[in-house]
């Protein structure tokens, strides 16, 4: 197991380097080069911003030197200081917003699992029943719905028409004066729509995957054996088949990390949630390059970590992976 994990960690090194190279390339689209006439005309890139970019990324030095200097900086998490009024260190700005984004994503991941697995399993067990067909339609439409639009409609329904749920932020203005129970309920009410919508995006894929997985497992010899020795159908399905069909879900969860993180930009912006996604959007709009680069880098590293975590848990759950 230790050998497997260390091998996986070694594989991450070239990927991490690749991530930094792509970030570095994106950075060089920046209006910063003094010889670039086009950006001289660009009113959005002020002389001051250009100077600070020069200093931050050592733009006056040769490319490979720039890359090396930048790599040394990010190795110690020195992402520079924000261009915005507060001029705070970028890593601080991101870290204080990261917990809420991670909380939202973990919650929606939990919701995805809780809904998609039963949906997929029931569809497979009752293949071609009306339930399976209905689930199929739901999934197909789910793939095509623009989730930000669904967010608008639900905001209109639950926020404006019915007035049941708040439509912005994560806290009511007066939450400091609430009892702990009321404050928790207040937080939950704020989270229902964003978490539900963010989960909706991943739901379709996982439930379809779960269904086809389950269908495949049911055809295996060991299921035939379980049936042949006279086990009840419930035991066969929910004990023998389900456990084996669940394994690959770990990988799918790992693969869904970039989608969830990317989606946080949309949901945090729509619902005014002070997380990393909203910070990213605001930084893109105000061309706060150090923050944009920092979040791009951290988003990629989080994805990499998600995949690593998925691979390791898979190896823990399934000994066959470790050996091969």
């Amino acid at each position: 197991m230790i050998r497997y994990v260390s091998k996986r960690l070694l594989f991450m090194i070239p990927l991490l380097l690749g991530i930094t190279i792509i970030c570095f390339t994106v950075m060089h689209l920046a209006p910063g080069s003094p010889t670039d006439m086009e950006t001289q005309m660009n009113p959005r890139a002020s002389a001051e911003a250009k100077e600070r970019l020069m200093a931050l990324y050592d733009l006056d030095k040769p490319l490979h030197v720039q890359y090396w200097l930048w790599l040394k900086k990010i190795a110690v998490l020195d992402l520079g200081t924000s261009f915005s009024q507060d001029r705070r260190p970028v890593d601080r700005k991101i870290l204080e917003r990261l917990p809420i984004t991670i909380l939202l994503n973990l919650l929606s991941m939990g919701l995805i699992l809780a809904v998609a697995i039963p949906l997929g399993v029931l569809s497979a067990v009752r293949q071609d029943s009306w339930f399976d067909r209905l689930a199929g339609i739901f999934v197909f439409v789910g793939f095509a719905v623009p989730t930000f639009w669904l967010a608008l409609l639900l905001m209109i329904l639950f926020g404006v028409e019915l007035g049941w749920l708040p439509i912005s932020g994560i806290r009511s203005l007066n939450y400091e004066y609430m009892t702990p129970g009321a404050a928790l309920w207040d937080l939950l009410k704020h989270l229902i729509l964003p978490v539900g919508l963010s989960a909706f995006g991943g739901l379709a894929g996982l439930s379809r995957y779960m269904r086809s997985n389950m269908l495949e497992v049911i055809r295996q010899d060991y299921i035939l054996t379980a049936r042949a020795k006279g086990l009840r159908e419930r035991t066969v399905i929910y004990k023998h088949a389900l456990r084996n069909a669940l394994l690959p879900v770990i990988t799918i969860l790992g693969l869904s990390v970039p989608g969830l993180i990317g989606g946080s930009v949309i949901f945090e912006t729509i619902f005014a949630i002070p997380g990393m996604g909203q910070l990213f959007y605001m930084s893109v709009m105000s061309r706060d390059y150090p923050v944009v680069m920092g979040i791009l880098l951290i988003g990629a590293v989080l994805t990499l970590l998600g995949n690593l975590l998925a691979d390791v848990s898979y190896a823990l759950a399934d000994p066959r992976i470790r050996v091969s």
Binding site: V26, P258, F280, Y281, Y289, N307
Partner: peptide, 23 residues
């Protein structure tokens, strides 16, 4: 294929937004 793996590490929406910030 390593290049593909690296590109897939980026949440696509982040990458698109970051590029737009510069253009």
């Amino acid at each position: 294929m390593r290049f593909v793996d690296i590109m897939l590490c980026f949440p696509t929406f982040f990458l698109i937004l970051a590029v737009i910030a510069f253009l």
